[in-house]
Computed example of a mutant assay.
Amino acid sequence: MEGNRKATALTASLLGIGFMAAIDEIVFHQVLAWHHFVETDNSALALASDGLLHSLELIALVSGAAIMLRLHEVGRQARGYRGAGFLLGLGGFQLFDGIVDHKILGLHQVRYVDNLWLYDLGWNAAGLMLLMIGYALLRRAQRGEALSQRDTTTR
């Protein structure tokens, strides 16, 4: 039975999004205390916004894990698409956060310092790098499938 490429990649992306949100929430919001999801003078609102992000991250992780386990149970995980989707989710979240949340919506900055552009550059470059690696893995999985199909039709 052939795996479901789209479901595998999308579910792995959901896991990647949840995982990167968890890293952001734990490392940058809690451990380093660089920012809240919504920066405001009202500390209760800032903490509540972090709680909302944490809740959404947990929903993404639990949902993604349940769907991925179900795909595994029914033998529908597509080989090569889990890692690609996971990295696309990681990078997509990072880049979305860096461009939309930080710059367009202005919800918060990476860190409140004088040379903010260095942090923005590092943040967005990391997201872009993850996206590029995920895309390369996705293309590799697609090429591997094409070669496999060609081999079975020539036999």
Rank of each mutant, 00 (worst) to 15 (best):
I67K: 04
L52S: 10
L87F: 11
H36G: 06
K6I: 10
F19Q: 04
R111W: 03
A146I: 01
G83N: 14
I133C: 04
K103F: 10
Q109I: 09
D50L: 04
A48K: 07
Y119T: 07
D41M: 08
T153Q: 13
A136V: 03
L95T: 12
L14A: 13
L56T: 05
D97Y: 03
L58V: 11
S63L: 15
T40Q: 04
A22D: 06
G92F: 10
H29G: 06
R150Y: 06
S55T: 15
R150W: 08
G3R: 10
N124D: 13
T152D: 14
G75P: 11
L10M: 14
F28G: 02
Q94V: 09
R79Q: 11
D120V: 08
V62H: 01
A136I: 06
D151H: 12
E2T: 13
N42G: 05
N124K: 08
L130W: 04
F37C: 00
E145W: 05
N124W: 03
T40A: 06
L118I: 14
A12R: 05
D114T: 13
R143K: 14
G3I: 10
A78G: 13
G85K: 03
V74E: 15
A33R: 15
E145V: 00
W117D: 11
L147T: 13
Q149L: 15
S49I: 09
I104Y: 02
M129D: 04
T8M: 02
T40S: 15
T8N: 06
L58C: 06
L69W: 12
L138P: 05
L10T: 10
A33W: 06
A125I: 14
N115G: 04
R139H: 03
G64E: 05
L61F: 04
S63N: 11
F37P: 02
G134S: 10
A78I: 08
L105F: 14
V31M: 12
S49F: 08
N4Y: 06
W123F: 12
K6A: 11
G134I: 09
A141E: 03
I17N: 03
S43H: 09
E2Q: 14
R76M: 10
M1T: 08
L138W: 15
G64W: 02
A7T: 09
V38D: 00
R70V: 01
L128Q: 02
N4G: 01
L56Y: 04
I59W: 07
